[in-house]
Amino acid sequence: MTNILMHSRIAGLAAAVLAFGAGAAMAAEPHGGGGGMPQLDPTSFPSQIFWLIVSFLILFLLMWKVALPRVGEVIEQRQQKVSADLERAEKLKEEVDQIAAGYEKLLADARADANEEIRKAQDRIKADQDKKLERHDTELATMISEAEKRIDDARTAALAEIREVASETATAAVAKLVGKAPTKKAIDSALDSAGKEA
């Protein structure tokens, strides 16, 4: 780029020097023929400068007052719109984040609630079962003790009956063997000692 620029500049300057030379040579000759550089004819200068000033000022006013404000306005509007859109997008994103956070929180709460509920139910069931077990245990214990008492009574009754039968049998046996009925006292003491050995 710079290379090309330099190149064209050098070429241009060389041409200009040549042109100036030619113009100067032409100026030295008497006027009349074609050729020479029209750029060096000073008779055109006032007109050129005058119309340059007029055109440039008109263009300046048109650019300054008409064209540039329009371009600037549209670019400004676009930048404003873009930045407003970006801002809105940012805000919406924040909102979405908030909603997502709320949703997450709700979900976590629901999960915690459910867990609590499950735990409570489990506790309730456990307490219920414990109570039932306890009741069954006591019921069983009373039933067992009642049964034991009944067995005990039966045993005592049975033993008393056995003693009665043994005393009668012993009396009869002794009467048969000896021919004389033993005293009640002797039989009792004999049964007592037998009972101790047993």
Binding site: G12, A14, A15, A16, Q39
Partner: peptide, 10 residues
């Protein structure tokens, strides 16, 4: 001269 010469040369 830069502008003028470039235009004339071209």
């Amino acid at each position: 001269v830069r502008l003028f010469a470039n235009m004339v040369a071209g």
